[in-house]
Design a binder for these strands. Structure first.
Lengths: 159, 159
DNA sequence: CCTCCTGATAAGAATAAATCTTATCTAAGA
DNA sequence: TCTTAGATAAGATTTATTCTTATCAGGAGG
């Protein structure tokens, strides 16, 4: 899935704007890394971006790719797909169901939904393959963490 | 979230039945590990299960926990939460959208859905916390992999 | 109840993804 | 051009997961 040149340029401009706004340095590495994802709609992983950009910037270290991604994520220029997967979690409930996940503490709770059970796979998706599961993740902040957050207040630096 | 003793016993029986059926040995370790997750609805991770069971079986190795989980998963006794997260993937499309994910090759494709955009958070979920994102993952087999699969035929043993 | 054999286990080594450390280096404002 | 805070490369480190190998034990058959 190649993206149009137009869309790629639009994303590149939005990245440069976001970087300027956030007071973040526009290094050669960052531009090339971003250029690489902005031109690829297939959700590449770190490794493949690293390999591709390294061809153009041989001394590139993979750490720079990771750092650039976390900057881009923080600046809301790109999103991590499947965020809550640092550690495998298991579910002994084999009934089809969905999850509410807290972004802060990672807590997971199950829920069922008739509305979702009746969901129809969109026409545009059908030619891509066969869907066997509709999985929904409601992401947000659990009541407990919301309490802590209001106490700690603006403690946002993640380091 | 403690599960009822009744539900726990039901899951334990279903595990024992599945194990017998699959010709899998019902070892002390496996029973204790399963007992631990079957009694916990909070989707524990490997590490915490390991710690808890180790109290009862001190020589337990964490590898056994991993192996037991993969057996349980294969026998459809439990499911891994957030399956496609072995490697971080990124998305430069910041418009709210959803994904179709192929279980075989891990390919990800975007789609939009007005039906999902109108989704209402179920009443039962509301007291748990605030939802800011409704993320939907349609899981299945992409057309390309379906082709390969019919060629390779029943090659399902994963090791 | 005993024996045997296959599959399971413990222990520690090996891998792999992601992050940290430290000594340079550089973007960009003065 | 000069300065400096923030960025980079390289390699070490951490952390989750898997592999290796030498025992061990479940459970089928006697």
């Amino acid at each position: 899935m190649k993206l149009s040149e137009e869309e790629k340029q639009r994303r590149l401009r939005s990245f440069i704007r976001a970087a300027r706004q956030a007071g973040i340095k526009l290094t050669h590495q960052r531009l090339e890394i971003f250029r690489e994802i902005a031109g690829d709609g297939r959700h590449p992983d770190v490794e493949s971006i690293y390999k591709r950009v390294k061809k153009r910037i041989p001394p590139l270290s993979i750490d720079t790719v990771y750092r650039t991604f976390s900057v881009l994520e923080r600046e809301k220029v790109l999103a991590k797909v499947s965020v809550f997967c640092n550690r495998a979690r298991f579910d002994s409930n084999m009934e089809p169901h969905h999850h509410f996940v807290c972004r802060r503490c990672g807590a997971v709770r199950d829920f069922f939904s008739h509305e979702l059970d009746r969901f129809h796979v969109p026409e545009e998706v059908k030619p891509w393959g066969d869907v066997d599961t509709v999985y929904v993740e409601l992401r947000g902040t659990c009541a407990e963490c919301a309490g802590k957050a209001s106490a700690e207040k603006t403690e946002d630096r993640r380091k």
